[in-house]
Amino acid sequence: MMDAHGHAIVTRGLNLWYGPFQALIDVTAGIPHGLITSLIGPSGCGKTTLLRCFNRVNERFAYVRTTGAIELLGKNIYDPDVSLIELRKAVGMVFQRPNPLPISVYENVVFGLRIHSRRASLKRADLDAAVEQALTEVGLWKDLKDRLQVRATTLQLEQQQKLCIARLLPLKPEIILMDEPCSTLDVDGTRGIEELMFALKGRYTIVIVTHNMAQARRTSDECIFMLLGKVIEHTRTADLFLSPKSPRTAEYIEGRYG
């Protein structure tokens, strides 16, 4: 499920406009399969916009225009036969602020299954199994197995964020997009989510947008530095932080601007 170079996502000459403003300029990049790739850069550099292209969630605004190609797992997602529903099933997204639905923990986890299946085809035992598996995978099962009927919005923020990740898993996504997933969490919460990312790595391709350079350095295998809508540098994370090729990258990671 990847191209010859082991890329899960490949963008080619991707341009995106919000009305007259061009937010992405000729972005060409390959994101490796099964690894964690971080998108870094100062505010307004287009990293979140790029992330949101990967499941085409940008498009709900009428004034967004895109050119170029994005190949996900070998298929151009701008092809006319691509169904947004199927695309988003395979490409899950985790947001800055945990957004569990205001229903029980159990219903949050099976929400995707309910959305994508006929009612009659869902058996209670299968749903129970899916909940246990997903919550185990994100490390919540032990804490929450007796509290599955609790309203999800009453959980701690870290648990909410893990639940949001667990909500994606029953749909068996291949790619998980994370938009600053730790920015509302404290140190322990951040560590919890980062450890979870390591645990999920390999089975899922993870792309994370972060403002926190230390986090990018800790968690990601590859790092893409963006500035004003362009990709400035894209290498292994260790190389980017130790010996950046572009002086603009060097200045940014030194904290001269941004």
Binding site: R88, R97, G112, C164
Partner: peptide, 23 residues
């Protein structure tokens, strides 16, 4: 109704109508 609820639904591939009904 917070936009975050709708986004949560859309991002698991719910249609607008499913989102309206569920959330």
């Amino acid at each position: 109704v917070p936009m975050a609820f709708r986004e949560a639904c859309w991002n698991v591939g719910a249609t607008r109508w499913q989102t309206i009904k569920a959330v």
